[in-house]
Design a binder for these strands. Structure first.
Lengths: 149, 149
DNA sequence: ATTGATATGAAAATCATTCCCATCTAGCTT
DNA sequence: AAGCTAGATGGGAATGATTTTCATATCAAT
């Protein structure tokens, strides 16, 4: 058991990018890929524990962090300081519009921002300029729900 | 003692924006205004304590948070999750290029981003869209210093 | 001066995240 | 197939920023 072909992609291949292929990493990865929007490490850990697939919280953190560093996950920061992760199939740099209600994320065309950031980087004299762009709001559904009370 | 006229502006007037005018708030505010770039609450607290103007850490946090909420301070998030504050004289929405070495902040022309963000907000169907844009890098000075080792 | 709403601050509580370290295991090597 | 070891795991303790608690102090209106 445990050789069913995954529906979306092969976690094993992805895991290989960050080191040794272990069961835990595959589990965390699969869970991350199954999530629609952004998730926190703790939430993911809870989900796994609830699903009867216990993985250490530490491992979840390590795996997610490693994946983000490998450029296979996007990271954003909640207003409370929590880090949220999202699996990124492609290697391209992207920005999202995130729903603060449900975590749903919508990739947005960030080309204008990229060029703008590059220009700033070039003209400022600063070295190693990186940028963070986050758009957040209430998606139509959550907005509806919020208005209904 | 403690009735010297501040060099830059009148903290008292600013403080009035967030509630009662107290000595502590004036002190925190004055300290914040005296700082060039962004500062963390703890750093500001240390500075004050060192200066022989002890103010409770709690109060520093409360004051800075209140000020940020009142729109008189900008807030950014460090990679470690720490919040950094910066006094903002005007009420206008601004974005900065921040030096990760020394905290120096350079206001940048963010007009392109604003229009971009507005467009996204309009076309997405999301409500209450807000955006966070952070540019960070090493300022020429810090870069020099970093290279010299 | 009296007074009641606010503000203060030391210590304790939270909370996400990281560290420690004894124990396991993937993936060779023999 | 058994042995080996660098790399991985995970429970619990540690960290570090921020918040809460609550008894005390202070503003500012009366």
């Amino acid at each position: 058991m445990a050789r069913n072909r995954p529906r979306t992609a092969a976690p094993s291949q992805e895991v290989a990018l960050i080191g040794r292929l272990t069961q835990q990493r595959a589990i965390v990865l699969e869970a991350l890929m199954a999530v629609e929007g952004f998730v926190g490490a703790q939430a993911l850990h809870n989900r796994l524990t609830g699903d009867g697939t216990p993985v250490g919280l530490t491992t979840v953190y390590r795996t997610l962090t490693a994946f983000a560093e490998a450029g296979r996950a996007d990271v954003v920061r909640e207003s409370n300081g929590e880090r949220l992760f999202r699996y990124r199939p492609g290697p391209d740099h992207r920005h999202y519009l995130i729903c603060t209600g449900c975590g749903l994320s919508l990739p947005v065309d960030s080309e204008p921002v990229e060029t703008w950031a590059e220009k700033i980087a070039r003209t400022s004299g600063f070295a190693n300029v990186r940028h963070t762009v986050e758009l957040a709001g209430l998606c139509p559904d959550c907005n509806q729900r919020a208005r209904g009370r």
